[in-house]
Each structure stands twice: as structure tokens, then as C-alpha cells.
Nucleic acid binder design. Sequence first.
DNA 1: TTGTAGGCGTTATCAC
DNA 2: GTGATAACGCCTACAA
Lengths: 326, 326
Amino acid sequence: MVSIKDIAKQAGVSISTVSCALNGSDKVTKETTAKILEIAQQLNYVPHAAARLLKTKKSNMIGIFLTDFNGSFYGDLLQGIKDFLNARGYDLLVCSGPQSRRLIAERMIDGAIILDVTFTDEELIQYMNQGHKAVVLDREIQHPHINQVLLDNKAGGTLAMEYLIEQGHANIYVVTGPEGSYDAGQRLRAVKQVIERSPHLSFHEVKGDFSKSSGEQAAKIIAAEYEQPSAVFCLNDEMAIGFYGYIHNHTDLVIGEHIHLIGFDNIELSQFVQPRLATIDYSMRKWGALASEQLLKMLSGEPIEHERVYVSLVKGASVAPFHGEA
Amino acid sequence: MVSIKDIAKQAGVSISTVSCALNGSDKVTKETTAKILEIAQQLNYVPHAAARLLKTKKSNMIGIFLTDFNGSFYGDLLQGIKDFLNARGYDLLVCSGPQSRRLIAERMIDGAIILDVTFTDEELIQYMNQGHKAVVLDREIQHPHINQVLLDNKAGGTLAMEYLIEQGHANIYVVTGPEGSYDAGQRLRAVKQVIERSPHLSFHEVKGDFSKSSGEQAAKIIAAEYEQPSAVFCLNDEMAIGFYGYIHNHTDLVIGEHIHLIGFDNIELSQFVQPRLATIDYSMRKWGALASEQLLKMLSGEPIEHERVYVSLVKGASVAPFHGEA
DNA sequence: TTGTAGGCGTTATCAC
DNA sequence: GTGATAACGCCTACAA
């Protein structure tokens, strides 16, 4: 492998001159710089990242940590992060699994973005105490080296519930998310707050875990006890899609007529189902870009505050007005 | 940051003793090793990956390069790769975009797995000439540092066509894949070879690009010129699903009766559509595991040959027998 | 069994 | 403007 030493020899200059020239320092003549650059080129010189990192303590790499690699769900989020980082000279590494944490500990990356429930708060804080920095997308946690960029789940949950109530629905189900999920927990909390303020409502909770199949299960349960038009808030779209499928294939009930359904996330599929699924929308790309921005600011020592990703209601014919007796 | 120097000082021994102890060399007393280990523990010592890499030239990291982050398609493949690598002390980094190539060039990873059409054969060969090693999943390319682990697209394409023909279909459409895709190209070639051997068939090609929406487009075209029962081979399942949707929602035709459909990939959704989609199956996890295995073998200098991932036919009611006049 | 010394490829601080 | 020289943190002969 060719190193700056080789090119120094070729050019008949010292290695420090080469280093300066390569890094575009103005302490070197234009001519020598040009000569050095040319030799580097024809020698196919590529710097050794590890050596540079050892000295500069900057790898220009950011890691995002995911629970697993499933879910087209993350596509846009990752793209948003990557685009933002690339534009600023950083690279993104997507990591998963407990073993990958060594990238943080062993200082291979400059910072981390966390969207991984398998990270405990404790270990996260431990890393941060060692001087590492991170942005979390999936929890509330206070530490000088941690910044939060969270979805406004509370607003979303409230928006969804109020929409159902506005449309005249008083018999309401919620299909919950997995244990331990911050987003699911927050959404459910918002739902309960609305419920508490509206004692006239009939309210039921059905367990779900954000998967399509759990949406189907929920549909089965709710369809079985169906007596009157009901509204269902699936805490994410994937479950809502599963819900749709079950109702459509296995019952005589009609979405938007007997059962009024709203989801959360506005995934691509939501616009294709008939009738269109009402849901809560937000931009994955923006979420990713914002998280990246916050992380880079932290790295540069800029003081920052926690951020929120705002959400909005997407109406859809899956929820129709209801004018019956509650 | 605490380094072996600090722990050497604490333990009252030299740096090299610490290094040996940490690396489990038998050149150090059990007692001193134990003492050193304990101090390392309580000092929260973590080795610096860059420093180690600089010396050992092994990062124990493997990179997989993808065209983009979309597509739940890759979930199982990545999981298969990760599991295999983790079990052998390697970590997986998922990378995308031209910038990420520096991980290869700058020697941050020990090897690469390529599933990225934006990599040209030329640049790949250039990297390999510099001594890097890779397994390719998406092309045929000969180089001592490159190993191929390819899907047996030819067998799959042939299997699909023969199934349609066996079932009595003689009016056959194929919905193609994107330009430049190796898999799409190979599948189409297999189709054409079957066609050439069966001159009595009526055969039509409709352009697609592996996306669901292109499947819908194809359905629109084929439905418009529908005259008699036809068989359609969508070169991947995603298009087949789009095809389904269009036929179901916008025409009176029935899959498995007027239109007989087969796909490729056996994605999860395929088993849920009604009637079940006939398709070509293979294991993403195995593909990933095999690719990883080959890469590690290359890294250890073991001589290896190119590998193939075998496929099989999955029958489904989306293709029914046809006994009419061709 | 332990310590000494040199080097991995860079960057950075100085003299010259 | 350029060139020694010393780090960075770790590994590994080799010497003691």
C-alpha cells in the first residue's frame, strides 16, 4: 500500500510537505503542491482512515443504530439522514445488534443516532459519560451529551382522537403498540387523556404490537363483538392495514361505514387502500435530517435544545361521520 | 480517554505486559493478568479500534453496499449476513451512496459485499487491484479478489415458464425488470430461451422496473388488450402484487381464471393475497449467510469457487390449468 | 515472566 | 516554504 512516505520519496520532498500539500495548506508552493498531487494521483494514493483517525480523533462517520433490519419503514428516515450527512462530508453507517456497539465504544464513529429499544438508558448514559455523543429518536433521557428528536406523538394521538369524536363517534377502540416502545406509549397516553376529558365515550383497549398480523388479530376481536358502528384507532398504519385486510376478507363489515378506522405514520400503502386510510402524517426525511443536524451541532459544540417533529392529520374516507345514538 | 498506558501505570507494569495480558497471551502470569484485567475493568478501558487497526490491519468489520435504503426486501438478507458474521466476531456495516466507498478505499473494512448497481465493474476491479476483497451479489465479474454468489435466476425463470406451459397456457406475457439489473436480465434470458424452444406460444413483453406501480401499469396494458385467458410472468413479486391490485380494483377479470399470474422472490405478501401467488422461492437468509461465508473464506486465503443460490417453484392458485384452444 | 524499542500512517509543532 | 521530529494508541519481536 502506498503511503505519503512513498510519494515523498518520489517527489524528493519530506513527508510533512506532502501532508501539508495534500491537506491544501497554503504553506506550500503551488508548484510543489501540484507536483505532489500529480504523483499522489498516479501512485493511486489513498489515505489510511485509521491512521488519520488516530491522530485527528475524527472519523467523519456517524452510526445509526436500529433494532433490526426489517421494515421498509426506515427507508426514508435513513435516506433523510444520509443525504444530510453526505452534504456535510460525513458518512452514515447503519448498524444493528449488540455487537455493533463497539463502534461507539472503540471510537470508530463521531456520533450516534439511536432508534433501538435494545439500548438501555443505562448503557447509553455510560457511553455518554465516556465522552461520546448521541441523538435519540426513541426515548426521553436527559444527559448533556444526548439530544432528543422525538415525534410529537401526543399531538398526533390527540389529533386522531379528536377527529373521531368530531365525526360523531362515541364507541371507540384503540389498538395498542408493543411494550417498551416510546412512540406507542406516548400515543396511548394521549388517547387516554382525551378519553378522560370525555366521560360519555365508550372506550376499549385491544393489544397490538405494531405488526400487520396483530392488526388482523385486533380486527378479529373487534369484529366478533360488533354491535354498533365503532371507531378504531390503530396506533400505527401497519396494524391498520392488517385490520383492513381482515375486515374485508373475513367479515361483512365495511370500513368507513360500520367500522371507522384511523392509523398513524402515513405509510405509502395507506393511500392505496380503499377507502383511503385516515392517519397521522409526518416527514420521515425531515425527521432524519433534523436528527442529523442536531448531532452535527452537538459535535461542533453548539448549544442546542431538544427538538420535536410535528405531525398533521390526514383525513380519509375510512372515517365517515356518524349520526346515530351513541 | 484511558489507554493501556494508564492501566500499565496503575498496575505498576509495562505497557507491553498490559497488551499481552489483554490479548490473553500465555507469556504473562495468571496473577498479573488477573490484576491487569481487573484494573482495566474498573478504569473502564476500551481499546481504540483505529490504533489496533493501524497495527493489525484487521478491523473485523464487513461492509454491505446497497443501492438505496428502501425496500423491506433486504431485511432478511441483511439479517442473514449479520448473524453469520457476528457469530464469527465480525460486524456488519450497511452502506449506501458513492461517498461510502471510502470505507473500502481507506481500509476501514476488511471486505465488502456488493448489491449496488451504481458500482461499475471498472471501479470494483480497481479496488480489487489495490488488494481489497469482495463478494458480488448482482453481477458476473471475474477477478481473483472477487467471488460471486448469485441467485439461480436462470433456473427460476425456466421453472416459472415451464409451470405456465405445463398448465396449458400458450398466451404468455412477461413483465420485465429495470435496465441494468442483473437478476432481471438473467430471468428474462431464461424466459426467452424457453420461448425459443416453444414456437407455438404467443409471447409478449411488457416493460416493468420491479416496482409495484410498474406492475399496475403492466396490468393496465394487458387488461386493455385482453381477449382470451392469458398467463403473466412478473419478474418479481412486487410487480405481481401491483398487478393483482390493478386487476382486482379496476377490471372484471379474475386472477387464476382469466389471468394466470406468477412472480419471483416469494416475498411475505405473496402468501397473503387471494388467490395465493405462484412464485419462485429462495432463502434470503441463506443467500446472505453464504455470501458472508464466502467472503470470510477469501479473507482467510482459502481458495473458493463461485456459488449459486438455488430456487424452487411455489405453486399457487393464481395459476390454474387451462384447457382451451390456444 | 516482564520490559524495551520500534513501527503502523498520519498530523502538527516547531525550527531552519 | 520546507523538513525533522514527536506524538496518537496499540502490537510484537527481542532482549533482559
